[in-house]
Simulated scan of single mutants.
Amino acid sequence: MSAVLYESKDGVAIITLNRPEARNAINNEVVQLMQQAWQRFEREDDRVAVLAAAGDLAFCAGADLKDMPRDIWLTMPNLSVTCDKPIICAINGVAVGAASTMVMLADMAVAEEQVQFIYPEAKIGAFAGVMAGFPPRLQYKAGLEWLMTGDPISAQRAYEIGLVNRVVPKGQALTAAMEIANKIAANAPLVVQAMKQIARNTLPQSPTERYYPQRRLLDGIANSEDIQEGVASFREKRAPRFKGA
């Protein structure tokens, strides 16, 4: 079965991390499939997305150390694919490293009461930089304490500092997230999308948030058919036949 599932239901896209045997850790397959899921959500008719996770041990254990993912930023909501439709996280278990970054970058989040959020990079000496863009989304002092100490925070503390919208009983995260999503999906989509677009344009962006979308654009050029055609035409001393692909 696929490591990432995509289901459309009454205008809501349910995107599920589906590696419960690996605590839904992010490997290279997940990176590729999550990128495809965000692209699909952006172009199709679903009005809201809910990001959930299979199993009850973890929402996501972060990067899979057995298959370290390249370009993990491609899994992030609102980063690799620009989208004006709202994205809600339903957190049913521990969220480690990149998983906490997913929650931070999502538009809304619901966490079960037993959940812990762990950002261990300061303790292990690794840092991709995306989480440093937290200040517009979390309380500054509380957020710095969480990141710099590497200590876990509870779902209740995450609520207090603005990382999540609601804390719900165990087993209720997806239900609560779907309740929010269904209410939003029933509203005027042009208004909902304008609200998100204007709100996000009001937030200052960190250097990493500005960099990664540009990198995606440049990577697309570097891997395009046109660059191969350009090189070939130069070698063959003829005019290039570009396709824009």
Rank of each mutant, 00 (worst) to 15 (best):
Met1Gly: 13
Val4Leu: 03
Leu5Tyr: 03
Glu7Asn: 12
Lys9Asp: 15
Asp10Phe: 13
Gly11Asp: 08
Leu17Ser: 05
Leu17Pro: 03
Leu17Gly: 04
Asn18Gly: 06
Pro20Val: 00
Glu21His: 09
Arg23Gln: 07
Asn24Ala: 03
Ile26Lys: 02
Asn28Arg: 09
Asn28Lys: 05
Val30Thr: 05
Leu33Met: 06
Met34Thr: 04
Gln35Glu: 14
Ala37Gly: 06
Gln39Ile: 05
Glu44Pro: 00
Arg47Lys: 14
Val48Ala: 07
Ala53Gly: 09
Ala54Gln: 08
Leu57Val: 02
Ala58His: 02
Ala58Ile: 00
Phe59Asn: 01
Phe59His: 03
Ala63Arg: 09
Arg70Ile: 08
Arg70Trp: 07
Arg70Thr: 10
Arg70Cys: 11
Trp73Thr: 02
Thr75Gln: 06
Leu79Ile: 14
Ser80Met: 05
Ser80Lys: 00
Thr82His: 11
Pro86Asp: 07
Ile88Arg: 07
Cys89Ala: 15
Ala95Gly: 08
Ala95Val: 04
Val96Gln: 02
Ser100Gln: 01
Ser100Leu: 03
Ser100Met: 03
Ala106Glu: 07
Ala111Pro: 06
Val115Pro: 02
Val115Gln: 03
Ile118Glu: 01
Pro120Gln: 01
Ala122Glu: 07
Ala122Phe: 05
Ile124Ser: 05
Gly129Glu: 10
Val130Ile: 15
Leu138Phe: 09
Leu144Phe: 07
Leu144Gln: 11
Leu147Gln: 04
Met148Trp: 00
Thr149Tyr: 00
Gly150His: 04
Asp151Val: 00
Asp151Met: 04
Pro152Leu: 01
Ser154Gln: 02
Ser154Glu: 05
Arg157Leu: 10
Arg157Pro: 02
Tyr159Gly: 14
Glu160Met: 06
Ile161Ala: 07
Ile161Glu: 07
Val164Thr: 08
Val164Tyr: 04
Val164Ala: 05
Asn165Ile: 01
Val168Leu: 05
Gly171Phe: 07
Ala173Lys: 03
Thr175Asp: 15
Ala177Val: 10
Glu179Pro: 02
Glu179Gln: 14
Glu179Cys: 10
Lys183Gln: 14
Ala185Ser: 12
Val192Arg: 10
Ile198Ala: 15
Ile198Arg: 14
Asn201Val: 09
Asn201Ser: 13
Asn201Leu: 12
Thr202Cys: 13
Thr202Pro: 00
Pro204Asn: 12
Gln205Pro: 00
Gln205Glu: 12
Thr208Gln: 14
Glu209Ala: 14
Arg210Gly: 08
Gln214Cys: 06
Leu217His: 11
Leu217Met: 10
Leu217Lys: 12
Ile221Glu: 11
Asn223Trp: 09
Asn223Ala: 15
Ile227Val: 15
Gln228Pro: 01
Glu229Cys: 11
Gly230Ser: 10
Val231Tyr: 11
Arg235Met: 15
Arg235Leu: 15
Ala239Val: 15
Ala239Asn: 13
Pro240Ala: 12
Phe242Asp: 08
Gly244His: 08
